[in-house]
């Protein structure tokens, strides 16, 4: 099963492209499920799953902390609950065996960012709430909180899987580059793979659009293609006459190609041994002007790039090390660590 998440700037035609992609995949013989997140959050199945998870949180966390019993319905206004429902809908579809492609119309880029962040943040929250004593004492019990963690882990693996891809849509205007930069930063930091960028509604020279406006849009389109030259960018024309975007069918992948079966593997992070320690390299698409912050608290690092923050647990091999250097480049963050003498037991 392949998962495609489509997201774009407002009014860029994301929903139209999602539907066109689904139509072509069906025409090519694939079994497709199309999810509109705005609708999916309201479906009863998603509500039921979300209600179950919220119930898990309420019963396992709040009751353990001697709070009164809290009904899931009472938590419906929690921040992030919409993303929670969306994740429930996607996770549900991802388990279907008889589907080749799940195509998700995520909506605006901010919604995509919140979606990716929610899975990560909820998992972090759940792990923080599970104290070591609780984890040991109840390891063999199927507690709702551990079920929630397992489910979140599954969702995170699904979102960062080689079979999952994000497709971004923008218009050929000034907002295009900035919006795509932000989307690429979020997706890279949260390990989601962008496999295609659509620049939609680019007027053709032969059509009867106002010449100057038309030329500006084509110039902006070219700038976007050049700016993101390391990514596959596809320009979609604006149909002559009524200004509606082209509703041509868009192929997910060419049928019979290798990509139909699986994506190429990609490297998200790596740990290399240095003479005196380790280098932990994290892939991220960092804009040149981005404000960068790196923090450490216990076994976690906080990576803040502009307004996007991710908290990562240190791999176990690096936990008893101190960070000696951090270097940011356009393609990622390299964190150098050395064993911390104060936490390594001496054999002498």
């Amino acid at each position: 099963m392949r998962l495609l998440l489509l997201s774009g700037t407002g009014g860029a035609g994301t929903s139209t492209i999602a539907r066109a992609t689904a139509m072509q995949a069906v025409a090519d013989g694939a079994r497709v499920q199309l999810i509109d997140l705005a609708d999916a959050q309201e479906t009863s199945a998603a509500r039921s799953a979300a209600s179950q998870w919220l119930g898990a949180l309420a019963s396992d966390v709040l009751v353990l902390r001697a709070a009164e019993q809290v009904l899931p319905e009472e938590l419906a206004m929690l921040p992030g609950v919409d993303e929670f429902l969306a994740l429930a809908a996607i996770a549900e579809s991802a388990t279907l065996d008889d589907i080749d492609f799940v195509i998700v119309d995520v909506g605006p880029i901010d919604a995509l960012a919140r979606l990716l962040m929610t899975a990560d943040t909820l998992d972090l929250l759940a792990s923080s709430l599970m104290t070591p004593a609780m984890a040991i004492a109840r390891a063999d019990l199927d507690t709702p909180l551990s079920e929630l963690r397992t489910e979140l882990q599954r969702i995170r693996e699904c979102l960062s899987s080689a079979d999952t891809a994000v497709r971004l849509v923008c218009l050929p205007d000034e907002r295009g580059i900035a919006s795509l930069e932000r989307a690429l930063l979020v997706t890279s930091l949260y390990e989601a793979h962008v496999d295609l960028v659509y620049v939609n509604q680019v007027p053709r020279g032969k059509d009867s659009w106002p010449k100057r406006w038309s030329a500006t849009r084509r110039r902006m389109s070219q700038r976007i293609v050049e700016h993101f030259s390391d990514l596959p960018v596809r320009v979609l024309p604006l149909r002559d006459g009524d200004g509606a975007p082209v509703v041509e069918r868009i192929r997910v992948v060419e049928k019979g190609s290798q990509a139909w079966a699986a994506h190429a593997t990609r490297s998200i992070e790596s740990i290399d041994s240095l003479g005196s320690g380790f280098a932990w390299t994290l892939a991220a698409r960092i804009p040149a002007s981005a404000a960068l912050r790196l923090g450490r608290t216990d076994d976690r690092v906080i990576i803040a790039i502009d307004a996007v923050t991710r908290v990562r647990s240190l791999p176990s091999v690096l936990r008893r090390c101190e960070i000696t250097r951090a270097v940011a480049s356009p393609t990622g963050l390299r964190i150098e660590l050395a064993p911390d003498p104060s936490v390594w037991r001496s054999n002498g």
Binding site: G295, T297, D298, A326, V327
Partner: peptide, 15 residues
């Protein structure tokens, strides 16, 4: 130190 967080300076290369 900020609520137990220690901040590490980040160098920039290749921009």
């Amino acid at each position: 130190a900020e609520r137990g967080i220690s901040w590490i300076p980040v160098e920039r290369q290749g921009f």
